[in-house]
Structure formats: C-alpha cells, structure tokens
C-alpha cells in the first residue's frame, strides 16, 4: 500500500466550499517514472515525486513536492473544515440557539396547527411535520430553517399539471377528518356522523371535478 501511495496514484479533488458549487480545486498526483526530468521539491532538497496541479477558478497552478512534503501539503488541504449542507437536527438546534429566550421557546412550543393539531414542540422532537398546512401555520418558524437547509426559500422546479392554486378544500378535509376522529373518541356520535357526511360530500365533489369530460 505504501508503494502505491508513494507512486502517487491518480488524482484527488476538493471543492472550495458551497459558495461555488461545481468549481473544483483539483489536485493531480502523478508519479515520476520513465523519462520525467528529476525535479527538486519546492519545500525541501529532496527530489519531487509528486506533481500537483491546483485548478481554482480555472487558473492552473503547479506544485512540485517530495513524498513527505506532498503528504503534509495534502493533509493541510484536507484538514480545512468547511461547511457541508446542515442536516435538520443541526439546523434546528442552531436556529433555536440563535433566536429564542426560554420563555419565548416555551410559548412557541405550545402553538398547535389548527388543521392537524401538531404542536411546534412535537415537530421539534420528531423532525416531521403533521400536515401540509403546517408550512403556512408555522411559516415564520420554518422559513429560517428552510433557508438554513436549502439556502433558498423559493421553489423553481416543476408544478403539478392540474394544479389550480387552491387547496383550501383539501386542507379543510384534513381538519374535518381529525374533528370526526375526536368526536368518535368523545362519543359524540351525532356530530361524528354529520362530519362524516360533510367529508363524503366534499370527496364526491372533488372526484366529480377530476373526472375528464365525457367520462361516464
């Protein structure tokens, strides 16, 4: 293995950070064999056996080093800590450290989505939202988090072909289903049956609206 390392196999690359995605710092490790002219290491008096090409912003720069200096050089390069895209847990933690006083956080944790009933505390604990409406209801809390994760807050990709821009009716269904479940739990059966009828009415109307013209 040492032999392989010594002879400088292939190439390594690293990026300068997420600010410039797609632009690479490339390091070529080439072995000196055959007719290559003996060259002195730029950092000591030994023979350079590693010829490293740095490509940053398209301007190549050559570095010629011996085995030991090359190793040091590359270790330095790899020792640099650079931010990778944060995961949800660290983004959440960071946001909460930066922002809120304890009392404020306690108040925030109590907030519950009127549609699905999830509290912000439950979201914080599980990392999962309760329903699509949470993105509206917890917008102020989620925006910095989303920005932290994605670096963006605006969708630019595809959209549903049939999207009407209005999903209030669907959101309403989520709320009604939850209310029906709670009514059953509380043994309010009359209320539950009214809710069930309303859910069915909305579902039927939605199914009707989706049906292509002329479809029996």
């Amino acid at each position: 293995m040492e032999m392989l390392w010594h002879h400088g196999v292939a190439a390594i690359f690293s990026g300068p950070g997420s600010d410039h995605p797609g632009s690479f710092l490339r390091i070529h490790l080439g072995s000196v064999c055959g007719g290559a002219q003996a060259m002195q290491c730029q950092r000591c008096e030994k023979t350079a056996t590693f010829h490293i090409t740095e490509l940053t912003g398209g301007k190549p720069e050559e570095v010629h080093l011996c085995k030991d200096c090359a190793r040091e050089y590359l270790t330095q390069t790899e020792g640099e800590e650079s931010p990778s895209a944060p995961n949800l847990a660290s983004a959440l933690a960071q946001q909460l450290v930066v922002g809120q006083a304890a009392s404020e956080l306690a108040r925030l944790d109590q907030r519950a989505c009127p549609v699905c009933g999830i509290t912000f505390f439950e979201f914080r604990s599980t990392g999962r939202l309760g329903c699509p409406h949470d993105y509206v209801f917890f917008e102020n809390e989620l925006n910095p988090l989303i920005l932290n994760i994605h670096g963006e807050v605006q969708h630019t990709g595809k959209r549903p072909v049939h999207f009407s821009g209005d999903t209030d009716e669907q959101t309403n269904l989520i709320r009604l289903r939850r209310e029906m479940k709670e009514a059953v739990k509380d043994e309010k059966y009359e209320q539950a049956s009214q809710l069930r009828d309303e859910i069915r009415r909305i579902e039927a109307a939605a199914a009707e609206a989706r049906r292509p013209p002329g479809d029996g």
């Binding site: 509206v136 989303i146 959209r159």
Partner: peptide
C-alpha cells in the same frame, strides 16, 4: 400537496 412558493410539501422540510 403543493404551494407556489415552497413546491411539493413533504413531511420533513
């Protein structure tokens, strides 16, 4: 589940 600003809405942000 889709919003103009945030695109397709998912359980995890």
């Amino acid at each position: 589940a889709f919003k103009e600003r945030l695109g397709y809405l998912t359980a995890c942000p």
